[in-house]
Amino acid sequence: MIKEAPRENRAARYLVSGPPLLFLVVFFVAPTLIMILTSFRFPGEFGGLAPIAAPAEKISGEYGFTPEAYQFFFSDVLYAKIFLKSFGVALATTLICLIMAYPLALLIARSEKRFRNLMVLLVVLPFASNFLIRIYAWMIILGPESAFSHFVNAILGAFGLAPVTLLFSPFAVLVGMVYVHLPFMILPLYTNLEKHDASLLDAAQDLGATAWQRFWRVTWPLSLPGVFSGSALVFIPVLGMFAVPDILGGTGDILIGNLIKDQFLGTRDWPFGSALSIMLTLAVLSVAGLATWFARSATGQRA
């Protein structure tokens, strides 16, 4: 029989883990439940929700619970398309972030110890200024009269290609997404790479591995946990992001984030907005589950 921990110990444990647990219940579990309930109700006449029971003075209208929001979601292929497109943007952003972040994280991890903290500070420095201001800055950079646009079009012109508008395009959305989320890829990668044992690279080189082989056979596989956590930290927030497509994407570029936001702030169809959120959560959970399974088999971990 397992001996129970002394009473004071257990009390201390509840004291320590209690508040964060309570916080999660109040601000995560409860809202999720409310959202699930909301998704099965009727929208109110002027936004919000219709009452569950019909009020005495009014007979017309719909009351109670209904799967209508979900039926609506599956009735129009448009929504599936927006989901697919959003996942595509999230995937592209994650990959571009990974390709850009990896060399930088490696550079920081391999540079002298006293410079590392300074470099990490530089990576997170953009957070010091307001998020929206930084996105609006991109609007100016990508705008038709910007030096950058002129430069790009000059190059295209030199090759005999027609000039392009950068702003309000999928390209601008991708640039914004990558820009916003890059630090979330760099930091976990750096944290992982910084812990690598340098003697492993010496051993690999000693046993005949070229620089490229040392990377693919030692550094890369050992960095996979960092790659996976960085990817999760980019992929999931990108799916919910509406500000970047709103500002940089123009009217045609609607992603799930915008769609959900519109249901609450624009169309004022709360049940449909909730249903969309639930669908998104389910989709993210299944992607995360798949990724975890893939990560397990890729890193050769058992149990």
Binding site: S199, A203, D206, L207, A209, L222
Partner: peptide, 18 residues
Amino acid sequence: PEKRPVHTVFQTYALFPH
């Protein structure tokens, strides 16, 4: 080092953990 027909056994073993 990778081209020398010389191999090393390190004090910390340096076995590849993965």
